[in-house]
């Protein structure tokens, strides 16, 4: 069994704000971390390996610092890791990102199952997984909250549909995106950290891909374009109240009365 897990490095905080006067972005530290949902994806991949044997490969895309998330995957027990990194890939939207991952996978080899987190905490779209499955030409199930069965033919999963859960079977090869709480992720182990300290993180650039036309990647390969960015609109008619707790509570009570919130 060849298992692939796709992971991403995201900003450690989401405190990026626009300065309303200058229009410039204010950032509060640029520390980064592994997308929290990807911990569940890695854990799911490792559990599948426990059942079927084989190997787990981690794949990420980003600047060279993103090597850190592959290292983290190694500490959890992932066998091999690849980082796709090239200046030409910058500014990619969902279409260009999923295409780049697809090309990366074509370079690495064939996989029976691709596991992704259900979304990232920076983009928050949850679209790259299904888009990647489309490029790979394999079926996908999103919002997987449980793996029921795994064997050499395929997988039975529980899919969260908000109002209901659907139990579905898919044959290999396929892609799943997993929800938080699918399974408790293991902690990175210190012993593994030491053991994998010198383990190679493979770097892939455009030169390694079958399609070397830079127009298909990054901003050039993106179908969507950010025209402008601006701070969220402030509410115009507003009342701001300050004072002692008791005063404020009385005023709040009066507001609730006025808004007919008291039954």
């Amino acid at each position: 069994m060849k298992i692939l897990v796709c992971i991403k490095q995201v900003p450690g905080t989401n405190k990026v704000e626009v300065d309303e006067q200058t229009g410039a972005l204010k950032r509060d530290g640029v520390d980064s971390k592994l997308n929290p949902y990807d911990l569940y994806a890695i854990e799911t991949a490792l559990r599948i390996r426990e059942k079927t044997g084989g190997s787990v490969t981690a794949l990420t895309m980003g600047p060279l610092q993103a090597e850190a998330v592959i290292r983290e995957a190694y500490m959890m027990g992932v066998d091999e890791g690849f980082l796709i990194s090239d200046k030409k890939f910058a500014g990619a939207d969902v279409l260009a990102t999923s295409y780049t991952l697809f090309m990366g996978i074509k370079t690495i080899g064939e996989f029976d199952i691709v596991v992704c987190g259900k979304q990232t905490t920076d983009g928050d779209t949850g679209q790259v997984g299904p888009a990647l499955a489309e490029y790979l030409g394999i079926p996908h199930i999103s919002w997987v909250k449980g793996i029921k069965e795994v064997d050499h033919n395929g997988v039975v999963v529980e899919q969260d549909m908000t109002e209901s859960s659907m139990i579905v079977r898919m044959q290999w090869p396929c892609l799943i995106t997993v929800d938080k709480d699918i399974i408790q992720p293991r902690l990175p182990s210190y012993r593994k950290k030491l053991a994998t300290k010198n383990k190679v993180v493979n770097i892939l650039t455009l030169k390694d891909f079958v399609d070397q036309n830079a127009n298909n990647y990054g901003l050039l390969g993106s179908a969507t374009k950010v025209e402008s960015i601006f701070p969220p609109q402030a509410n115009k008619d507003q009342i701001i109240l300050e004072g002692s707790g008791e005063q404020l509570t009385k005023q709040l009570y009066a507001i609730l009365e006025k808004e007919r919130a008291l039954r």
């Binding site: 995201v10 900003p11 989401n14 990026v16 704000e17 983009g123 950010v226 025209e227 601006f230």
Partner: peptide
């Protein structure tokens, strides 16, 4: 951008 920003796309 995962921040307190709106984007027009």
């Amino acid at each position: 951008f995962g921040g307190n920003i709106m984007a027009q796309i």
